[in-house]
Design a protein around this nucleic acid. Structure first.
Lengths: 167, 167
DNA sequence: CATATCTATTTTACTAGTAAACTATTTGGT
DNA sequence: ACCAAATAGTTTACTAGTAAAATAGATATG
């Protein structure tokens, strides 16, 4: 097998390390290096797709989090789902609320809490854009057959279980 | 199998979508959703580890890119490896050069090009920190045996081949 | 051999994200 | 009931990243 032609970014990085630091076992980057790289590339593509709807990736994450919930969510629940800081949630929701895509509600049981939910306009945006998002994700995985996708998902779930803060 | 207890973040997201939008096939998120989530969590951990050396993740990426190369690299080559913009490379290298970890060289064959390489101090930092980085990556994958890691790496390489811009 | 065009990097002006301080509210101890 | 401590969210002050303009050098064409 021709090394250069078969190699992706991580194969090249690994070859570099093995030449530069032969004593180190760098095999660990085979998995995490690819996860970082694929994640970053996928994120860029999705961001470009979403430009049409004039929402950022982070804003879309907020919208999707609310869209798949069967009840209004607290700001802190949205923060946990999006992996951004609480301050970012405030900013993103401010912007989305100004555009009429999301609304804030008080919670009668605790005045500190702010509940958030999609407006009809927000629901409409998600109904329009989320299918395109799914198409893009399917396209990124088009090199794998159904069995490989299932295997990959199962292995990643196993990693996820260990990496998730509360898991 | 108890659904709630087995689920990671993506299992919960998928269950939400299946309740909220039963008509959509959201199985695509099983892979890309986990890649994004694991990537973001891993990135946070690594960033925290690197705080000890007072370098950011992005700066460490620059240092590692130079460390594994057998020749000085152009600014544009560093940019391609780090997945950030050219403007970011300038900023990161400015900071690293100010700290004496990296140096810029002119290239006699083309005056527009800037070559970059580690200083001895930069080499030292990578020699000290890169092993910790590898330890962290190994720890994140501790839930998998060697065969599973190899399988996961192979499947990710297949995705990578399709997603890489020039692949 | 000009000079227009292209290319590599840096600079500028701006946006997004964050940690820490702040505000408002609740809770628990007495 | 009162007040200290804890909690939820927002604001502030700052940093990192970017797109587009600017700079400087190379290349090609008449």
């Amino acid at each position: 097998m021709d090394f250069e032609s078969a190699g992706d970014f991580v194969d090249r990085a690994r070859a570099g390390w093995e030449r530069a630091r032969p004593a180190l076992d760098v095999s660990g980057i085979e998995v995490m290096g690819r996860i970082s790289r694929i994640g970053a590339l996928a994120s860029q593509r999705v961001e470009r797709d979403l430009a049409a709807a004039a929402v950022s990736r982070a804003e879309f994450d907020v919208l999707c989090t609310l869209a798949r919930s069967d009840r209004p969510l607290r700001a802190s629940e949205v923060t946990a789902a999006t992996m951004l800081s609480g301050a970012s949630t405030t900013k993103n929701v401010d912007r989305l609320a100004r555009r009429g895509l999301v609304e804030r509600l008080p919670w009668e049981r605790d005045g500190r809490v702010v509940l958030m939910r999609l407006t009809p306009l927000g629901v409409e945006l998600v109904n329009r854009e989320f299918p395109h998002f799914l198409d893009r994700e399917r396209e990124l995985l088009a090199g794998l057959d159904a069995g490989e996708k299932a295997q990959l998902a199962a292995l990643l779930r196993k990693v996820s279980a260990r990496v998730e803060p509360a898991g």
